[in-house]
């Protein structure tokens, strides 16, 4: 038996037994260089880039730009309230107050985005915000105990299946608005993403969103990103026009008549 061959077979079986936990080598990482931009569906992005909706001609808030979330009845009722506000263009969006969008809503941000893989982590830098996602691929598990608090980007653990980065995110804050139609999820959401470069000019992120509190079944959403000429820029949210602030320091959202429309 060829010694070199035996060695390789052993290496392969070792790799297989290490399965998903293996930390990739730098040379095995795919080429995701460059600057990318959300391609749609455009319930959010058409405000900024109407020419690139996917499918073409899909208008804001119309279906089936993306499928309707399979909400449980009480969540559906709340979503319908938010949808009505969004259609009237008066949905208070935390993003406009310089708050983070959080995962998975951050993946539908306007402006540009970078996907930065290294062996131990992959970063997703989102110009709008600015926001940063960190996906740990060094074999660690989800955080436990006192470290497992809910936050905007959640706790994202990833592994590579060939050129596809598979990401599992838990620990997201509940009630985060995940798009400008006013869809929200609970803090029990578990978000699985399969991120890959589909072709030379397209990145693809296939989401499966499970949420035992809010959804009746897993919700599948696909997002595409087209390659654009850079560069990606700094983001200075405070340069945007500012909203009124009340005596307690709370930022207010007003309708066209100047009435406060925030929830509380």
């Amino acid at each position: 038996m060829d010694v070199r061959r035996a060695c390789c077979v052993m290496a392969l079986s070792l790799a297989a037994s290490a399965a998903a936990a293996a930390v990739p080598t730098a040379q095995s990482l795919p080429d995701w260089t460059g600057v990318w931009q959300n391609k749609g569906p455009p319930t959010d992005t058409d405000l900024f880039d109407g020419g690139t909706s996917d499918p073409p001609g899909c208008a804001a808030l119309s279906q089936p730009c993306r499928s309707h979330p399979p909400y449980r009845p009480s969540w559906e009722a709340r979503y319908e309230q938010n949808l009505a506000l969004a259609r009237a263009n008066i949905l208070p969006d935390p993003l406009t107050r310089c708050m983070p969008r959080g995962t998975p809503g951050n993946m539908r941000s306007p402006d540009t985005i970078e996907f930065v893989p290294r062996p131990e982590r992959t970063w997703i830098f989102i110009e709008n915000g600015s926001q940063a996602r960190r996906i740990y691929t060094d074999g660690r598990k989800h955080r436990t105990g006192a470290d497992a608090f809910d936050n905007w980007t959640g706790d994202s653990i990833g592994h590579w299946e060939g050129d596809t980065l598979v990401v599992e995110t838990v620990g997201v804050k509940g009630e985060m608005m995940i798009d400008r139609s006013g869809a929200v999820l609970s803090s029990k959401a578990r978000i699985t993403e399969r991120i890959r470069r589909r072709d030379a000019s397209t990145m693809e992120d296939v989401f499966t969103i499970e949420d035992p509190e809010a959804l009746t079944r897993p919700w599948a959403v696909t997002r595409l990103y087209r390659k654009v000429d850079g560069p990606i820029f700094d983001y200075a949210c405070a340069e945007n026009p500012r909203n009124t602030i009340d005596a307690s320091g709370r930022t207010l959202t007003l309708d066209a008549q100047g009435r406060v429309i925030d929830a509380r």
Binding site: P92, P94, R97, M99, K173, E175, D246, S248, G249, R250, T251, D262, A263, R264
Partner: peptide, 10 residues
């Protein structure tokens, strides 16, 4: 910086 915004976000 502002607990008011934290409340408004939730």
């Amino acid at each position: 910086r502002s607990s008011g915004d934290a409340k408004a976000a939730n």
